[in-house]
Design a protein around this nucleic acid. Structure first.
Lengths: 335, 335
DNA sequence: CTGAAAGCGCTTACAG
DNA sequence: CTGAAAGCGCTTACAG
């Protein structure tokens, strides 16, 4: 843009009067739908900035981040990446928690618009594709980290190589001589959990090992799921020698329950987690786990979002960062 | 104010022309010092809002929150309280991490001013009283949660009854028949850790128990401090029967080290933590701990800050919320 | 549903 | 250093 967009220039571009553009900006009702659309287009094409919202040079870009929780290691580490990267890029973070009585999508979008915020980062949010589309329609850029549901067409998402991670965890256990390996997953609807499970199944099949239905459990990404999972597995006629848990939290529950029941880890039971959060280092024994590059994921998402806010098309709709198996003390050779 | 302040009303109040007021607002040089002062006064007296910064009704107040870390349970739970309460009050949170290469106080204050943000919540920050004063001088309201250093005159702070908490933890151990009780503290400079230690000493003295110098250790609020602390204590000629750790994180390290060394908790060693974060429920055995009302602290701080931003004087410079002893499985009767 | 016109709040080049 | 005046960008009551 050679010159700054004004109501007048936008009006000319849209072929309407200044008044009409003003009405659209102020959300007046008395504008025909088609006209409104043309004006909206002209506004974004010309890069029009609401007067109250032009940033004085010292102010920084604000990015909204919506997380499901702040009290879990997973979110905390992603958040750390987001904060670090945002600072480098001169952006600041407006944090909010989804879930519970979260405000409606419309309300949130309105607040963002009113403050001139134009970027939203969802961390494993349960927002539906329809809701995300609604936000995008208002000119807000959206990037999703580790989506629980596929976020819908045209929405950039950042995640990890869940399938490969699940496969490598299982191969590690196979390599230690275990053949009776169980899987305790997160929510059945969560795509990332499904991917880890598929990786697990793939590794077993490659070795020609039959997949046992009752070795595959699901629940949530929490310790309780791990506790109950181990109970259930130990009650089987032939309990597993090893467990691959779809998150560190689940693995934590498995370890706790094992200790309660006097099952020695790793001597009698090998356990692998997923995530590589700091929690996996605090357990005893320390947890063998598939580390996700959580900080990098946060950082990558921030960069992608800033690019989109800049009007550039995303490089790619889906970015997957590599996971890495960290072998520690919760896994051992089969006896 | 019956009616909204405009340049015209401010000019009338200051007895100058509209042009002059405009110049002052825009930082022009060509205004006499005395005039400038009169105008400034009229501006603040009339509560004039720069056009770019008046919040349209849909936009919410933004509160800056600076935390030392996001990856510890303590901060996460305080944060949860902050977010919840802010949402109720119609405020939103701009999150940033202090520590590392944090931007200078001046830079931060400038950014806040440029975006019209006028409230800052510090969570256990290491900001010096001088730095806090500098921010306040720019018209930004400040509230500190659990200050590491006393935050200086006139700065509201929110904390917990650390002394009483330390005392009750120690009394619990005394009540179980232990007399050889050690204390593993956080940073020696941290006031909250000192207070907990003083509560511990007070409980011992009340029972006429001599305080042993080598039973009192310090370090940081982290597991490593707990690990090393237990090592050190077990190396003593008469090791303690019980340990009061100044945080759950420290206690976690004690538990881990005890397991490594084959010391049974609580049979051979009782352990009490401090904080009551979710981590204290995930250990095995579950941790007896002094719970701080972390969510409430966050919430109280938000309310106090919003009051100050509203121009009301704070109710009190220091708010202390009650701690509560949670007896779980890491403590047992002396044998 | 649309836009011409009046008007508000602010900025600025310029005369004094 | 000050302010009258021109002018810009926006909003809005109202005529069509």
């Amino acid at each position: 843009m050679s010159t700054k967009a004004t109501l007048a220039s936008v009006a000319a571009l849209a072929g309407v009067s200044i008044s009409t553009v003003s009405k659209v900006l102020n959300g007046r009702e008395d504008v025909a739908e088609g006209t409104r659309r043309r004006v909206r287009e002209a506004l974004s094409q010309s890069g029009y900035q609401q007067p109250g919202q032009r940033h004085s040079s010292a102010a920084s870009v604000l990015i909204d981040v919506a997380v499901d929780s702040v009290t879990t290691a997973y979110y905390a580490e992603v958040m750390e990446g987001i904060l670090e990267c945002a600072q480098t890029q001169g952006a600041e973070i407006v944090l909010s928690k989804t879930g519970g009585t979260r405000p409606s999508v419309a309300e949130r979008a309105e607040k963002m618009q009113a403050s001139g915020r134009r970027g939203l980062l969802l961390v494993t949010s349960r927002w539906s594709p329809a809701e995300i589309r609604e936000v995008k329609r208002r000119g807000i850029a959206v990037v999703v980290i580790d989506p629980i549901n596929p976020p819908g067409r045209g929405v950039t998402s950042v995640g990890a190589t869940n399938w490969a991670g699940g496969k490598s965890a299982t191969e590690h256990l196979l390599g230690l001589g275990h053949s009776r390996i169980a899987f305790i997953g997160g929510p059945q609807s969560a795509e990332c959990s499904q991917d880890r499970e598929h990786g697990y199944v793939a590794a077993l099949l490659e070795r020609g090992i039959q997949v046992a239905e009752d070795y595959i459990l699901a629940g949530g990404f929490d310790p309780e799921t791990g506790r109950r999972g181990l109970d259930q597995l130990l009650a089987l006629q032939t309990p597993p020698q090893a467990i691959f848990a779809a998150s560190d939290s689940i693995a934590l529950g498995v370890l706790a329950e094992a200790q309660t029941r006097g099952v020695a880890v790793p001597e009698e039971l090998s356990v692998v987690g997923f995530d590589g959060t700091y929690i996996s280092e605090l357990t005893s024994p320390q947890l063998t786990t598939v580390a996700q590059p959580l900080r990098d994921m946060g950082c990558t998402a921030v960069r992608a979002l800033l690019r989109e806010m800049d009007g550039q098309r995303a490089d790619s709709a889906r970015v997957e960062l590599a996971t890495q198996l960290l072998v520690r003390s919760s896994t051992a050779r089969a006896r």
